[in-house]
Amino acid sequence: MTYFKKLALAASIATALSSSAMAADMTIGFSQIGSESGWRAAETSVTKQQAEKRGITLKFADAQQKQENQIKAIRGFIAQGVDAILVAPVVATGWDDVLTEAKEAKIPVILLDRGVDASQDLYLTSVASDQVKEGKVAGDWLVGAVKDKDCKVVELQGTVGSTPAINRKKGFEEAIAGHNNISIVRSQTGDFTRSKGKEVMEGFLKAENGGKGICAVYAHNDDMAVGAIQAIKDAGLKPGTDILVVSIDGVPDIFAAMVAGEANATVELTPNMAGPALDALAAYKKDGTVPPKFIITESKLYTPADNPQGEYDARKGLGY
């Protein structure tokens, strides 16, 4: 009996200690995948900004696209006794051991931007976008923009088999389903890159009667859209007018294209995954509020009506 009392006392002291710790003097470890894309670089700088805004000390570890480096970094964070760990996991599998270690050390873990195949009680929450919804928002915009007119769409897919490519395709198809005037006539992979986006669009333009049959291009990311815009211009057509351009991500260069009237819509994949994560963490640390397991970020649509110049300026310094 006394043993249990002691244990209860120890537990209550521990709770009192942890709850008394203000958000201001928290130290958080952040294990980032690496810098494989501009978006990822922006996520890193926004995470640092968000931590600084809240007076949190952020320990940053770049894994250079290797899971073993991430696991090492997380073990390092546990050894240093940080207050929480943010992880953007490079792959979905193989996290059980290290997450269990964090759980045993009573350090909450929050997943950013990607999920893991591990038991849900091993992490506090995961903050990510809904990729199917991103595709759907893009498709809904097109449905609204063309109204009853016939519209042949060409699609620039992401890397074949990658999750965002599958989901963004699915969402777009859901949005245009039931609108018989809109059809996807050609769909190919541009590997999420500018140069492949341009090359594939060149092919599409030739194949569809010099582009005269194409009403819109839907790209799974902005970089491919930027490449496609150049291809449309080279073919002597006006992107944004002759061929509508809709894409996903919200990188600065697509806003620059919008300013020039060459892009029509983009769905933002916010690099601010850390903001909601740190808010949830602060609430959890304050009074033990357990956040939902999946926090979905907003998939906001931007069109030339949303001050693209301002959006460009706001994003330019983030490292995109």
Binding site: Q157, V160, G161, R186, S187, Q188, T189, E199, V200, E202, G203, F204, K206, A207
Partner: peptide, 13 residues
């Protein structure tokens, strides 16, 4: 280029 203009699904590239 042939794959692009022929309209094969990208899974076959």
């Amino acid at each position: 280029t042939g794959i692009l203009v022929s309209g094969f699904p990208p899974e076959f590239n």
